[in-house]
């Protein structure tokens, strides 16, 4: 596969959330505002990139039988780094994302990429794959978060857009709105995919 495609496939064609249907928990939980969505996306991309690099370099030396625990340790290390960085630089983001920062460790996208891609590819494709998948995840989160923030609060990135014209539909920033918006988003992706294929 062309290296460029390794990067782009994660964005639309194999978008981790909307097409591969992975990593729902952080997707639903943190997307109350666009800023949170972006923060979560960036943190996950960092971990994904780091673990892809380390695992693609070490894959040859890790015995096959204990590979999953080894991958988990690598991922957990990067998650700890990100956790400490966020605590150091943005208390607000730390408060908003809360428990979902350490939970990046069990985000199936990351272990999935380690097992399905990074351990059998060289460094450069692994980096591109990590970046692409991370970007795809971030994009899906941002779209979901923007829709929820716009409908639930009338703003995107705290910039007022609908305030005054449409009363905020509070339910969109509450848990049911997360399920509803993501359900409709996935259905829309399936619909357009079918249309393009036909």
């Amino acid at each position: 596969m062309h290296p460029y495609q390794e990067f782009t496939k994660g964005i639309v064609k194999e978008n981790p959330v909307l097409r591969l249907l992975l990593g729902f928990c952080p997707t639903l939980a943190v997307t109350t505002t666009a800023v949170n969505g972006l923060g979560m996306g960036a943190a996950t991309t960092f971990v994904l990139l780091g673990s892809n690099i380390v695992i693609s370099l070490l894959a040859r030396y890790i015995p096959d039988k204990v590979r999953i625990p080894c991958y988990i340790v690598v991922i957990a290390t990067f998650v700890t780094i990100v956790d400490l960085l966020i605590q150091a630089f943005s208390q607000e983001l730390n408060k908003n994302l809360g428990i979902f920062i350490p939970l990046i460790v069990v985000n199936c996208i990351i272990l999935g990429r380690a097992e399905a891609f990074a351990n059998r590819n060289r460094l450069i494709p692994a980096i591109l794959d990590g970046l692409g998948m991370g970007l795809g995840f971030t994009l899906a989160l941002m779209v979901l978060a923007s829709i929820r923030e716009l409908l639930g609060n009338g703003t995107i990135f705290s910039i007022p857009i609908l305030t005054g014209t449409l009363p905020p539909i509070i339910v969109f920033i509450l848990p049911p709105g997360a399920f509803l918006t993501l359900g409709v988003m996935i259905a829309a992706v399936v619909y357009f995919e079918k249309k393009k294929g036909a």
Binding site: P175, A178, F179, L182, G183, I186, A187, A188, Y191, K194
Partner: peptide, 23 residues
């Protein structure tokens, strides 16, 4: 169910209604 909504999307919409009930 309308075709694009089958499987996962309808699950999420059901979950949304259940979440409202739990609220």
């Amino acid at each position: 169910i309308p075709r694009p909504f089958r499987n996962v999307p309808i699950s999420f919409i059901t979950a949304a209604i259940l979440a409202m009930a739990f609220m």
